[in-house]
Design a protein around this nucleic acid. Structure first.
Length: 835
RNA sequence: GCGAGAGUGGUGGAAUUGGUAGACACGCUGGUCUUAGGAACCAGUACCUUCGGUGUAAGGGUUCGAGUCCCUUCUCUCGCACCA
C-alpha cells in the first residue's frame, strides 16, 4: 500500500481555507447566547527556536474542539497572536545590533508559517502582536486607567535585580532566589519602581477562585500565593518607649512571648541597639545584607541572631523581654518584627533553644521542652485566657487588645504589590511624564500610543535606567499639563503587560477608538475555554485576573473573571537514559541490544527514563521534521492519541508511525469504489457506536479514546471491498476535526463541493448502538467460570436459570450449598456457594 | 515540612465510576506476498509448569464482587517553603 499524498492534500486545503477565509467569524446576532463559544489558546512568545512539540498539543486540542463546536452549530471565536515584547529579542540585539523589531518580525513570520502548516482553524483576521503600536496603544491606555484609579505608585524599595537580564523582577518571577527566566541569582537593589497595588485585590482574587472551573492545583497555587492569614497586630514598647508593632496569627499565646525579633532591615534596629551591643549588631546586619535571598532561606536553616541589648514590655503581663535581631524574620512580611513564642512555634523554639532563651508553656497538651506544641488545648499561665481553647482564646484576646487599644484583629497576605517596571528597551513605554512643577503627569489619552523610539543603542545605562534614558530627543518633552520642561518615564512595562488583556483585544482587534467595543465584548466574553501550560498558573493568570477585575470595577468590562474554564495541557517529554549513578546519557550515545539499553562508549547498561526534552540530551523533536515526513494530520492525531490532554507524556516517534499507518488505511478505504448500497447491520452498529463515542469524547476533550474508537471502526471497515457512502460520509465528518485536511479531501471525493467545516455533525441512533445479544459473565464466588450469550434485556431470573444450565456452573456448584445469587442485567451472574 | 496529583503488561495508555482488568496503539513472535525490505497484510502476545492458579506500588478493611470505596505504609512528579 502506498503512502497517502498528505503533502498535496495538506497544502491544497490550507490554501483553500486561507483564500476562502473559511474560519472568519463575526458577531452574528442570529446565534443565540448559548451557541457562542470563545475558545482561547495561550499565545506564544515568538522565540528564535521556533515552535516546539508542546505548542501544537494545546493548539490541536482547542482546534479539534472548535471544529466540533462549529459542526454543532456554534459561532466560535478562535484567535491566535503573539506575545512579542520580551528580552530574548533585545539580548540578541545587544549581541548583533539587529533591531528587536526585525528579529521579532522574522520570528513571527516563522511561527506563522509553522502554525499554519498544522491546519488550525484560527480567524487570522484577528491576529494581534503585542509589540505593535496599534496594540500597545491600548496597553498603555489601560495602564493609565489603573494609574488614574490610584492603583499604580512609585516606590524606592529594594527590589529583586537580575544582573544577567539587567532588570528588576516581580516577586512572582523569582524562584528559589533565582531569575525565573535565566536562572541567575537575583540581587537586592534599590531602584525607583512603578508598582501596582495588586494587594488591594487580594480578597477578590481569592474569593472569586471559587467561581471558576479551573484545575484544583492552579487554584491551590493561587490561594497559596495570595497567602491570606488572620490574626492580630499588637504593639509592644521598648523600655525607651519606642513602639514595636508585630503581626501574629496566634495572639492567644501572647503570655508565652519570651523575646522579640526584628528583621535586620527593620528601622528600629539602629535606634534601640545599646552601645555595648552596637558593634555586634552592626556586623550582623551587614552580613545579612550581603547574603542573597537564596542563602537566607534555603541554606540558612540554622538560626542566627544577635541581642540588641534592648528590652520590650509585654503589653499583657508587663514582663520585660529581650529584643533580638535575626534574619529568620523577613522585612517584607507583616511588620518585619515578631513576638517570639518558643513554646508554640517551631522556628521560635529552635531559636530559643540555640540561644538559651526561656520557653514558657501557655497551652497544654505537648511537651514544650522536647518540641514546640502547635496543636490545640486549654490555655495555662495566661491569666484571663486560662482554660480556653485556641479559637476561643484568640477571639477573647483580640477583644481585650482592642478594648485596651494595644492591638487589633488583622488580616495579612503573602501576596505583595506587583513591581511593574523593567529597565529595558523592548517593552511598552510607560506613558507618564515627570514635570518639575506638576510632578507626575499622565500622557493625555489622545496622544497615545506613546511610541517606542527607534534606536540602535540597546545597552542599559549603568544607573539602572532603561536604554530609553539615553535618547535625549525622546526623554525630554513638554509637560502635558503646564507646557514646561518634562522628562518621560524611561522604565518600560514587563512582558506580562501585553498578555494581561490580549484575550480582550481579539474580540475587536481593529478598533482604533476604544480598546474594545462594549457590544463585541458583550457578544463573546467571558472566555469559555482557555488552554495552556501550567507554568503560568500564578504569573500570567493572576496578573490578567487582576487587570480584568480592575476593568470590571471601572465599568469597562461586564465580568468579574476573564477565563471561565481553564485546562493545562501536560508537558510532552521524551525518553532519556540513566546510568547507575543517576546521571543522564544523551540519546544518541545509547543503543538498544537484546531488549537492553547500552551506553555505546562504555558498554554499560543504562535504564530508560522520562526526561524533559533538551538540547543536551539530544531528544528534542522538531515539529517541522514530523510534518515533512508524516504530515500534519498525523502529527495532530498522534499528539492527541498519546494520552489524556492534561497529563505529561513521552514522545515516541514509533507511536506516531502507528497513527500515520491508521491514516493510510483510511485513505485506502476512501480510494475504493463508492457504493450507495445499504451497509450491513453489523457495520451500521459499529458506525453508530463510533459516532456516539467520538461525539462524547470530543465534547469532553478525551481525544485519545475517541481516536481509539475510530481505529476500531477502520479496522472493521478495512475488511470490506467497497466504500459504503452510508458509512463513509458520517465517518469523514467524525474524523474532520482531528485530521481536517484528509477529511476535506475525502469529502470532496464523495462528491461534495464545499468545505465540510460547517457540515452538520453526525448523530447516532441509540437503537443502532445497542447489541441484540450480550455476553454475560458467570461467576462462582466472584471468579469468572464461563460466559454465555443472552438476548439484551434478559431478566435476572432468566439469567440465573441460564447460568445454571451451563456445564461449568454445574461442575462448580455440584455438592455445594448456594448461599446467594446476584444477576446484573446485561452484565453478569454471580453465584455464591459454600462447602 | 505544607499543598496538589499520580503509581495498571516490555512501552504509551483503556476500563461506561463498584460488575469480564489490559480497549486502542507501539514493540515483539510466527506467517503471507516480495529480488529485498526498516513496506503492506494476516495471526498471536499480562504472568505462572497442565486442570487451574496469580495479577492494577505494599499491607489491611468494607462487599456476592474492588484498579475503582475506606484505613495504614512506600515511591514518584509538580508547586510553595523561616510568611510569624
Amino acid at each position: 500500500m502506498s503512502k497517502y499524498p498528505f503533502k498535496d492534500i495538506e497544502a491544497r486545503w490550507q490554501k483553500y481555507w486561507e483564500e476562502n477565509k473559511t474560519f472568519k467569524v463575526s458577531e452574528d446576532p442570529a446565534f443565540p447566547r448559548d451557541k457562542r463559544a470563545y475558545v482561547l489558546d495561550m499565545f506564544p512568545y515568538p522565540s528564535g527556536a521556533g515552535l516546539h512539540v508542546g505548542h501544537p498539543e494545546g493548539y490541536t486540542a482547542t482546534d479539534i474542539y472548535c471544529r466540533y463546536l462549529r459542526m454543532n452549530g456554534y459561532n466560535v471565536l478562535h484567535p491566535m497572536g503573539f506575545d512579542s515584547f520580551g528580552l530574548p529579542a533585545e539580548n540578541y540585539a545587544l549581541k548583533t545590533g539587529t533591531h528587536p523589531s526585525i528579529t521579532t518580525q522574522e520570528n513571527i513570520n516563522n511561527f506563522l508559517k509553522q502554525i499554519k502548516s498544522l491546519g488550525f482553524s484560527y480567524d487570522w483576521d484577528r491576529e494581534i502582536s503585542t509589540h505593535t503600536s496599534e496594540y500597545y496603544h491600548w496597553t498603555q491606555w489601560i495602564f493609565l486607567q489603573l494609574y488614574k484609579a490610584g492603583l499604580a505608585y512609585e516606590s524606592d524599595m529594594p527590589i529583586n535585580w537580575c544582573p544577567d537580564c539587567m532588570t528588576g523582577l516581580a516577586n512572582e518571577e523569582v524562584l528559589d532566589g533565582r531569575c525565573e527566566r535565566c536562572g541567575q541569582q537575583v540581587e537586592r537593589k534599590n531602584l525607583r519602581q512603578w508598582v501596582f497595588k495588586i494587594t488591594e485585590y487580594a480578597d477578590k482574587l481569592l474569593e472569586d477562585l471559587d467561581t471558576l472551573d479551573w484545575p484544583d492545583s492552579v487554584k491551590a497555587m493561587q490561594r497559596n500565593w495570595i497567602g491570606r492569614s488572620e490574626g492580630a497586630n499588637v504593639v509592644f514598647h521598648t523600655e525607651g518607649g519606642d513602639p514595636i508593632e508585630v503581626y501574629t496569627t496566634r495572639p492567644d499565646t501572647l503570655f508565652g512571648a519570651t523575646y522579640m525579633v526584628l528583621a535586620p532591615e527593620h528601622a528600629l534596629v539602629e535606634k534601640i541597639t545599646t552601645a555595648g551591643q552596637k558593634a555586634e549588631v552592626e556586623e550582623y546586619v551587614r552580613q545579612a545584607n550581603l547574603k542573597s535571598d537564596l542563602e537566607r532561606t534555603e541554606l540558612a536553616k540554622d538560626k542566627t541572631g544577635v541581642f540588641t541589648g534592648a528590652y520590650a514590655i509585654n503589653p499583657l503581663n508587663g514582663e520585660k523581654i529581650p529584643v533580638w535581631v535575626a534574619d529568620y524574620v523577613l522585612i517584607s512580611y507583616g511588620h518585619g518584627a515578631i513576638m517570639a513564642v518558643p513554646a508554640h512555634d517551631e522556628r521560635d523554639w529552635e531559636f530559643a533553644k540555640k540561644f538559651k532563651l526561656p520557653i514558657i508553656e501557655v497551652l497544654s497538651g505537648g511537651n514544650v521542652e522536647e518540641e514546640a506544641f502547635t496543636g490545640d488545648g486549654p490555655h495555662v499561665n495566661s491569666g484571663f485566657l486560662d482554660g480556653l481553647g485556641k479559637e476561643e482564646a484568640i477571639s477573647a484576646v483580640i477583644k481585650h487588645l482592642e478594648e485596651k487599644k494595644i492591638g487589633t484583629g488583622a488580616v495579612n497576605y503573602k501576596l505583595r504589590d506587583w513591581i511593574f517596571s523593567r529597565q529595558r528597551y523592548w517593552g511598552e513605554p510607560i506613558p507618564l511624564v515627570h514635570c518639575e512643577k506638576c510632578g507626575i503627569v499622565p500622557v493625555p489619552e489622545d496622544q497615545l500610543p506613546l511610541e517606542l523610539p527607534p534606536t540602535d543603542n540597546f545597552h542599559p545605562s549603568n544607573t539602572g535606567e532603561s536604554p530609553l534614558a539615553n535618547i535625549e530627543e525622546w526623554v525630554n518633552c513638554e509637560c502635558p499639563e503646564c507646557g514646561g520642561k518634562g522628562r518621560r518615564e524611561t522604565n518600560t512595562m514587563p512582558q506580562w503587560a501585553g498578555s494581561c488583556w490580549y484575550y480582550l483585544r481579539y474580540i475587536d482587534p481593529k478598533n482604533t477608538g476604544r480598546f474594545i467595543s462594549k457590544e463585541a465584548e458583550d457578544y463573546w466574553m467571558p472566555v469559555d475555554l482557555y488552554v495552556g501550560g501550567a507554568e503560568h498558573a500564578v504569573l500570567h493568570l493572576l496578573y490578567s485576573r487582576f487587570w480584568h477585575k480592575v476593568l470590571f470595577d471601572l465599568g469597562l468590562v461586564k465580568d468579574k473573571e476573564p477565563f471561565q474554564r481553564l485546562i493545562n495541557q501536560g508537558m510532552i517529554t521524551s525518553f532519556a537514559y540513566q546510568r547507575k549513578d543517576k546521571s543522564l546519557v544523551p540519546t544518541d550515545q545509547v543503543e538498544e541490544k537484546d531488549d537492553k539499553y547500552i551506553e555505546i562508549e562504555t558498554g554499560e547498561e543504562v535504564t530508560q527514563v522520562i526526561a524533559k526534552m533538551s538540547k543536551s540530551l539530544k531528544n528534542v523533536i522538531n515539529p517541522d521534521d514530523i510534518i515533512r515526513d508524516y504530515g500534519s494530520d498525523s502529527m495532530r492525531m498522534y499528539e492527541m492519541f498519546m494520552g489524556p490532554l492534561q497529563v505529561s507524556k513521552p514522545w515516541q516517534t514509533k507511536g506516531l508511525v502507528g497513527v500515520n499507518r491508521f491514516l493510510n488505511r483510511v485513505w485506502d478505504i476512501a480510494e475504493r469504489e463508492i457504493t450507495d448500497e445499504e451497509p450491513s447491520k453489523e457495520m451500521l452498529k459499529v458506525l453508530h457506536k463510533t459516532i456516539k463515542k467520538v461525539n462524547d469524547d470530543t465534547r469532553d476533550l478525551e481525544f485519545n479514546t475517541g481516536i481509539a474508537q475510530m481505529m476500531i471502526f477502520i479496522n472493521e471497515a478495512y475488511k470490506l471491498d467497497e466504500c459504503y457512502r452510508g458509512l463513509w460520509e458520517p465517518f469523514v465528518l467524525l474524523i474532520a476535526p482531528y485530521a481536517p485536511h484528509l477529511a476535506e479531501e475525502m469529502w470532496r471525493m464523495l462528491g461534495h463541493e464545499d468545505t465540510l467545516a460547517y457540515e452538520t455533525w453526525p448523530e447516532f441512533i441509540e437503537e443502532l448502538t445497542k447489541d441484540d445479544e450480550k455476553e454475560i459473565v458467570v461467576q462462582i464466588n466472584g471468579k469468572v467460570r464461563c460466559k454465555m450469550m443472552l438476548p439484551a434485556g434478559t431478566s435476572p431470573d432468566e439469567m440465573k436459570a441460564a447460568a445454571h444450565a451451563q456445564e461449568k456452573v454445574k461442575e462448580w456448584t455440584d455438592g455445594k450449598t448456594i448461599v446467594k445469587e446476584i444477576a446484573i442485567p446485561d452484565k453478569l451472574v454471580n453465584i455464591v456457594v459454600k462447602g
